[in-house]
Amino acid sequence: MVKAPIVTSVEVNEIEFEIRDVTTEPIIGIPIYEKGSSIRRKAHVLRVNTDAGITGEYFGGNAVEYAAIPGLARLLIGKNALDRELFYNDAKQALRQQASMGRSQIDIALWDVAGKLLGVPVHQLLGTYRKELPCYASTYISDFDPDGLSSSEAMADFAEQCFELGYPAFKIHPWMGQPLNKQIEMVAAVGKRMAGKMDLMLDPVCTYETFGDAVKVGKVCDEWGYYWYEDPFRDSGVSAFAHKKLREIINTPILQTEHIRGLEQHVDFVLSGGTDFVRGDPDYDGGITGLMKLAHATEGLGLDLEVHVAGPDRRQTMAAMRNSNFYEMGLLHPKHPGMKPPIYQDGYVDNLTAIDAQGKVSVPDGPGLGVPLDWDYINAHTTDHAMYS
């Protein structure tokens, strides 16, 4: 019998790195392509150390989530690192007034501990369903650089490029704050070029100002047979009633719940009729423990759970799900290699050319999350470090 690994400390490294040829989008603040510009970004690496000499590691999450780590560490020190369900529920109660920020990253690191302890990948602990995942190409936010995704034609060209690379599906992230007719033109241009060749999705990142705008764009999605329509307008994706009404008016399936946090709220949203596809994210929804609860709840309702963005933890969880269609490869741009630092070893990447000829990626089979972190890179770029013991 394996001796229980006891948590001895929790560590956080803050790293800083440069991203070239991007600038900051002025409304929502994420990077967009702009040749010749550059920005500096911060990111975090979490470690949960145990007396068994095994360390659970996770790269991901944001500064707001990491602000909760000092308080959560006290729930872990001296406890069995395998008691993930207990931590999930204790942290859920402790963070009931803080939107559950911080528990997700610790939970993911605890799954890494368990896999490393037993010498198996997380997907095997969860129960493997598959080891290859079909991908969709998920674009950068549309930009204003003449050499970038600055026109409907450029977006259609990129969709065609992704199709030729083997991607079976393509998702548009359009401009923020631009006229509706310009937005509609892009949806139609990509539809005209690629409908019937690949599945098309649209994620306006809640940019359309009114419900009426969302309806107008949704009807264009209907015309070109879009696979799903995600987070269209400025309710910020949280009104089940509004999206139920939208579902009654347009034919294109709706994908919601990226901005709904946790199991119960997701289920309430679905039962209220607010979505067709369900969105889940291990960083937002309670880690791997929370995401798998959501996957099973969604499966019980006969629906599909689509996992948000890319990473080793996402691949591990999707490998244990039947009811999920695509791995979100992104964010992608025809002229930019990506915004993520080279944090992983063993050649692991999530970029435009990471797929095979069938448009799939494999699930890492190493212990835990499956891919070791590059600590030479992390240490060289660390700007702050904290240990809680």
Rank of each mutant, 00 (worst) to 15 (best):
K116P: 00
L117V: 12
L118H: 12
L118M: 15
G119D: 10
G119T: 07
P121N: 12
V122F: 06
V122L: 06
V122H: 04
H123E: 06
H123R: 10
Q124L: 11
L126E: 11
L126K: 08
L126N: 08
T128K: 09
Y129K: 15
R130A: 04
R130G: 08
R130L: 02
R130V: 03
K131S: 14
K131V: 15
E132M: 10
L133E: 08
L133R: 08
Y140H: 05
Y140A: 00
Y140N: 00
S142F: 11
D143Q: 06
F144G: 04
F144P: 01
D145H: 04
P146T: 09
P146M: 13
D147Q: 14
G148Y: 01
S150V: 08
S152R: 09
D157I: 02
F158A: 00
Q161R: 12
E164P: 00
L165V: 15
L165C: 07
L165D: 05
L165R: 14
G166K: 09
F170D: 00
K171M: 10
I172T: 02
I172D: 00
H173Q: 03
H173M: 03
W175V: 04
M176T: 09
G177Q: 12
L180G: 04
N181V: 10
K182W: 11
Q183N: 02
I184Y: 01
E185C: 06
V187P: 02
A188G: 08
V190Y: 05
K192F: 07
K192Q: 15
K192R: 15
K192S: 14
R193Y: 04
M194S: 13
M198D: 06
D199V: 02
D199Q: 14
M201I: 01
L202S: 00
D203M: 02
P204I: 12
P204R: 01
V205L: 15
T207W: 03
T207M: 15
Y208G: 03
F211K: 09
A214F: 10
A214S: 14
A214T: 12
V215L: 13
V215F: 09
V215Y: 07
V217A: 13
G218Q: 12
G218T: 09
C221H: 00
C221K: 01
E223F: 01
E223L: 13
E223M: 10
E223W: 01
G225F: 03
Y226L: 07
Y229V: 04
D231L: 12
P232R: 13
P232V: 15
F233W: 14
R234T: 08
R234P: 04
R234L: 13
D235H: 08
D235N: 11
S236E: 09
G237S: 10
A240Y: 08
F241E: 14
F241I: 15
A242N: 12
K244Y: 05
R247D: 09
